[in-house]
Amino acid sequence: MTLLDDFMTRALLAGLAVSLATGPLGCFVVWRRMAYFGDATAHAAILGVALALGFQISIFVGTMLVALIMAMVVSVLAGRGWAMDTTLGVLAHSALAFGLVAVSFLPNVRVDLTAYLFGDILAVSRLDLAVIAGGSGLVLGLLLWRWSALLTATLNEDLAHASGIDPGRERMVLTVALAVVVAVALKIVGALLIAALLIIPAAAARNFARSPEAMALCAIIIGGGSVWAGLQLSLAQDTPSGPSIVVAAALIFVLATFFGTLREALRKS
């Protein structure tokens, strides 16, 4: 396939694939107020990178494992009465710090840390693209499959229970989905900005959507648009690609909120 020879094409496809997963997952992160949870999971991914390099396993597997363990430790500690933000604050930054220190112990590996902190979407290989598409497809499929149950559990856990849904299981589905997305999106925007890719398109989509499904779809479109616009910006002005994508998303959010507020005001008058 000659199409995939172009690094820009690969970058765009990788970004669009990730948007397919981050759109709907980001909606749940917004609805369930898990923004900081996503952030913490992403920070832990750096520790995963260090461990993966140290033990010579796939970085994708390493980050996903650490992100999963992190998410579960947070769930357990939160269940024991620790305040969620304290737990996350301790774990997220500790994991990031441990990761950075661990990387410095790797003698023979030359690690470009900025690539993991801020992403390197322009360096996406064919194999990366396959992993990203596979991971995103998995998450999208998981969310579609569990959609109604996830939505019910998000509204009220007792209500879900009465409908025969185990809210704990649905929380686990989201935790796993989050870990997979962090692992695949690490290459696109990096550990520090993954949460932005989850939250900003979903928050912008809220201004247009009148149903949960419409909001998820809208978030996918906005996420995809941000990737395209960010890559164009990066190409034209030679700006770092990951942050450029987030900048594009932020500008779309501002515009969306402006039009949303305007429409609200017009309807009331």
Binding site: T152, A160, I165, A209
Partner: peptide, 15 residues
């Protein structure tokens, strides 16, 4: 959550 748009008909269709 105010971030969740939810028409009444959709709510009644859950799950």
């Amino acid at each position: 959550d105010p971030g969740l748009p939810l028409p009444v008909a959709r709510f009644l269709s859950l799950p």
